[in-house]
Design a protein around this nucleic acid. Sequence first.
DNA 1: AATATATCTTTTGTCGACAATTTATCGATA
DNA 2: TATCGATAAATTGTCGACAAAAGATATATT
Lengths: 251, 251
Amino acid sequence: MQKKTVKRSGAGASAPAPLQDERPANDGEGGASDQEIYERVITSIMEHRLPPGTKLGEDKLAKIFGVSRARVRQVLARLALERVVVLHPNRGAFVAEPTVEEAREVFEVRRPLEALVVHRIVAKKDPAIIARLRAHVAAEEAARAARDRRAIIRLSGEYHVLLAELSGSTLAARLMHELASLTCLIIFLYDAPTVPACRDQEHAEITQALADGDETTAIRLMAEHLEHVEACLDLSRGRPEELDLEAALAG
Amino acid sequence: MQKKTVKRSGAGASAPAPLQDERPANDGEGGASDQEIYERVITSIMEHRLPPGTKLGEDKLAKIFGVSRARVRQVLARLALERVVVLHPNRGAFVAEPTVEEAREVFEVRRPLEALVVHRIVAKKDPAIIARLRAHVAAEEAARAARDRRAIIRLSGEYHVLLAELSGSTLAARLMHELASLTCLIIFLYDAPTVPACRDQEHAEITQALADGDETTAIRLMAEHLEHVEACLDLSRGRPEELDLEAALAG
DNA sequence: AATATATCTTTTGTCGACAATTTATCGATA
DNA sequence: TATCGATAAATTGTCGACAAAAGATATATT
């Protein structure tokens, strides 16, 4: 039997702003709503079940979700705008393969953005927020106990999205959602095969500092956390394929 | 005769990443390309020729641009994702009306992002960059001389987008493009009718600090600049309509 | 006369079909 | 046998038509 996938932490994190006001939600029968399609696709991407470079054929997805191609097209366009997929004209949609440069840019932008979020959280002094964070950290630990690497990486990203959401800034939350998705792709692309146990209890430590209302420590821990994640990556050279290709041609 | 509108500074700024690889560009005849439609709409919004709350009917736009409704729909979806228009289900698309809260969030995120961009620019030490910036500042001054308030506001926003683009971070440039568009909307919504002469030569001063390679000063000037812009706004209460409505009902 | 209901108009949402482009397959030729 | 070219298959891009919902108008009723 396969490793069991840890369920996503129900309510909060990674629920990307609905973009439109709610609607009846076509939940009955075969057809899924746009939001559902979006979430299933991006979750699959974040969990690496759809690895970078995978072709996302419109007809194929349409049949899978039991909806028309136009629907799928909309979702793909949205994902493309979030840079999680790239569109090649007349060729179709593919799961994005962030370059090393893009990866560095993502971390570079995340750094100050995470600091801002931490600042806001501390300013709120809301026990309910701490409770939500602790619950999420617990879910992460469960995933780690279950050795579910995919869920671990996705939940790690969602911790930061949850943080941004709880900070009360819808803008920061939206940006963090996008950056977290990209970070997931980056980790799967560049993570050194050594060990994903790099950042284990850091989320718990950050949460504790937030609970203590210690902004300075929380920001420092967050900065270190991001550094650790980035340090675990192998960004010294381009991604495998391109490197191999160039090397082969050079030889 | 009407005040003449200053042309946009040709090449660089506010050219939002093409999202797709280039294509033949259906430039001939009546139909405009998606990118053209997008740029014309967002420029109109940034120049306040399409004020917040304006309905953007699909059929209407389709006829204006000589293109099918589906095309317009795509562009509107993109603008909605950038939060510069909002979609009401079964009601259509409207130019966004950012709330006071959203306005504050925009400035809050811009602050560290601009600092990051300044840092990158200084690190590059590229005279060509300074030249581009000076050219843009000159265009701003021309608009100011022409008393073209719309162009002034748009160009002010585009200065920051240009800065982000020249910094070499495509991610920062993309985010700045979005934030600058929203800032334009915010200024038009909340700018105190006192005087738009609030921030006049500040871009020139920042550019000079960048030319001197003085990062500390550049970052300080940028921070002050953003503070000044935000201070010029009247964010003390909600936007007119809603306030009037509530006040009327309360009385 | 004012409100509520019903009908009509306008606009959006959705879908399937056709056209254009790319990719794959097959055959011919050197 | 390998390469080049032509044909065929599959996939994306685009559009117009139909269905559904909201808004407006007119009518009937209290």
